[in-house]
């Protein structure tokens, strides 16, 4: 690519903005690329862990993209996967330590899933598809954008699952305050189970595609 052209590009050019915005909707990692589903099912029973998970993924993906982008000319192509893994793993360990130090209870709830960020397909996918071929700043935007795209789905799913399944929002007993239990209302136990997360993700995809027909595949 022509270097002189790139250097004149402003920080938030239309192209860079697209890197940040597209993954939120049209190119969403979960609903369009269908990546990172496993953790979306596992950590969305409550909003709090989902939120912490989102922050962790934003930190890991943002920095991993930048680091790999900086190293991209020095990484021999044949061992690039292992190099990427080392980068991701170091960042995940950092995040894990921070969580353990400051929000221990949430860290316990997330248990192995923080460690499993390493295997989150979104992260490897972005490193392979974007950071290896682009400069640090666009890579950073791409990483943050995809992590946010992943995160907002996570939080929406977690909101419905916590609200309907446990009757709380961010551990605040909303349903109890509303007093609906007195009318015979009960929490929906199915919401706590992982299949329901899949169904909610499915509903989000349904809504998204009926709003934006360009996402519907031809078959």
């Amino acid at each position: 690519m022509s270097k002189d052209k790139r250097e004149k590009e402003p920080l938030f050019s239309a192209k860079n903005r697209k890197l940040l915005i597209n993954p939120l909707h049209k190119d969403n990692p979960i609903t369009t690329q269908v990546l990172g589903i496993c953790s979306a099912l596992a950590v969305t029973a409550k909003i709090k862990p989902a939120f912490v998970m989102t922050l962790s993924v934003i930190a890991v993906l943002g920095f991993a993209n930048v680091i790999v982008s900086i190293l991209r000319h020095g990484i021999p192509p044949r061992i690039r996967i292992i190099v990427q893994l080392v980068v991701i793993a170091s960042l995940v360990i950092l995040v894990d330590q921070v969580l353990k130090a400051f929000v221990f209870d949430v860290s316990k709830q997330l248990s192995v899933f923080v460690g499993l960020i390493i295997t989150n397909c979104i992260i490897m996918g972005r490193l392979e598809a974007f950071a290896l071929g682009n400069k640090p700043w666009p890579s950073f935007l791409d990483g943050i954008g995809n992590a946010f795209g992943y995160g907002w789905i996570l939080i929406v799913v977690a909101f419905f699952r916590e609200f309907l399944g446990s009757g709380t929002i961010w551990d605040y007993p909303v349903m109890e305050q509303l007093g609906v239990y007195n009318f015979g209302y009960q929490n929906n136990g199915f919401m706590i189970l992982p299949p329901m997360a899949l169904i909610i993700v499915g509903i989000i995809i349904w809504v998204q595609r009926s709003k934006d027909k360009s996402l519907v595949e031809e078959n």
Partner: peptide
């Protein structure tokens, strides 16, 4: 099945 998993008590 929905009821069975959602509201086992009933």
């Amino acid at each position: 099945a929905f009821l069975f998993f959602a509201y086992p008590a009933d």
